[in-house]
């Protein structure tokens, strides 16, 4: 009986002193991999158009984003036209070629054909501006383009 009750005293305590280490490791992993890069928008946040036939852009590093929209209310100097933002600057369509070439230098040569340009434009942007961007992109042979949209509703099959 004595032996039996000894056993009943309970399982040995599991040593959890390594648990924080594991969790911290996970934490650091998430902290490091999370890209909190939120391109500082210098224009009004574009209201993206809705669409259903969308494709996901894989390989985020291969995507260069061009923002198009109106100036913010407080920035009076830009007037009411459409603005193009590349990286952290307001630019014109003449700067796009340079921007694309610059993006290309960050990648290997064999990755270049897979590079996609994503245009995040406001629904009220005029097509004229988009056409200008398209022409500039064709000029530097950046032919993969994606019009960024929000997915509306669920996919109807």
């Amino acid at each position: 009986m004595a032996k039996f009750s000894k056993k009943k005293k309970g399982l040995p305590k599991i040593n959890t002193s390594a648990l924080p280490d594991i969790v911290f490791m996970l934490l650091f992993f998430f902290m490091v991999t999370t890209v909190m890069r939120q391109n500082d928008l210098l224009i009004k946040t574009p209201k993206l158009p809705n669409a259903t036939e969308v494709k996901k852009l894989e390989h985020k590093s291969l995507v260069s984003t061009i923002f198009v929209g109106k100036a913010r209310d407080k920035d009076k100097k830009y007037g009411g036209g459409d603005l193009i933002q590349l990286n952290d600057k307001i630019a014109t369509d003449r700067d796009i070629a340079n921007f694309i070439l610059n993006e290309r230098t960050k990648h290997n040569e064999e990755e270049v054909p897979y590079m996609t340009t994503s245009i995040k434009a406001d629904i009220k942007t005029s097509i004229g501006t988009i056409v200008d961007i398209k022409e500039a992109l064709v000029e530097v042979n950046a032919l993969k383009l994606s019009f960024s949209t929000r997915k509306s509703g669920e996919e109807n099959k």
């Binding site: 969790v23 996970l26 934490l27 998430f30 902290m31 999370t34 669409a51 036939e53 969308v54 494709k55 996901k56 852009l57 894989e58 985020k60 995507v63 984003t65 994503s118 245009i119 398209k134 992109l137 064709v138 000029e139 042979n141 950046a142 032919l143 993969k144 383009l145 994606s146 019009f147 960024s148 949209t149 997915k151």
Partner: peptide, 25 residues
């Protein structure tokens, strides 16, 4: 707690859009 905070705030939002293939010049 910290881990969960990061898990929740991380928006792994994938950019999606309408694909367009431009024609060469």
């Amino acid at each position: 707690l910290l881990l969960i905070f990061f898990l929740v705030t991380t928006t792994m939002d994938v950019d999606s859009g309408i694909p367009v293939k431009l024609t060469e010049k």
